[in-house]
Amino acid sequence: MSRLSKILAWLFIAFWALTALAPALITPGDPLAINPAQAFQAPGAGHVFGTDESGRDIYTRVIHGAGDSLFIGLAATAVGMGLAIVLGTLAAMAPRWLDGIILRVLEALYSIPSLLLALLIIAFTGPGVGPAIIAVGLSTAPGYARLVRSQIRTLKNSEMLEAATVLGRGTWLKVRNHLVPNALKPLLALVTLGVGQAVIWAAALSFLGLGTPPPAPEWGAMLSAGRTYLHLAWWMSLFPGLAIVVVAAGATLIGRALGGKARTI
């Protein structure tokens, strides 16, 4: 990564962290304040992103929505990636038979499309923020787990570790000095890419009415509300969606700069 892109990446992360943790610093308004007289205002001087059907300011809501959306995305990535690291590492290090079993289980999970798997999980747990996190986490885990497994496998069979064996290094030294540090960097890239995708999936569940319930200012839920008035108030849909695109594309850019490949959902 060049120096400039490093600075840009950190600025990007800092901006969203600030927005998520202290939205009031950026916009003083109340995201839930209703003002029916101001309903369906187009973007303009008073309301840069316009207002919704109850006269709430979209800009304030988009900024305040970052907390919920990003939290669900991060938490879901943590669940999915945690599971993936455990399963992937286990499969890579395990004897063939155990590796085979884990692979089959992963394939079974993988064979149900992510969103369908998330829906399936919610069918059993019922809707809500917690279930959405678990659903998105579980549905993204198999893809990551396979990547983690192949990465550790490649490292395990690398000439680098063979050379360490020839130099007389024990298992612990090889794992500590070579395997873990070299596996971490690509994993970091994977996590970054994963956050972007998880934000999208979490918003999708809210959009379908299965995540954060309205009128909370979550981006997916805002889009769901905006859909009803699509012909009337395009701004209700445009801006929350743009926020998702910016976060997801930014995460992809940073992840790719860290050496990740955007090949998994």
Partner: peptide, 11 residues
């Protein structure tokens, strides 16, 4: 690749 379907459809 980062555009969610539910928003792209709306746009």
């Amino acid at each position: 690749a980062a555009v969610p379907h539910f928003w792209l459809g709306a746009v």
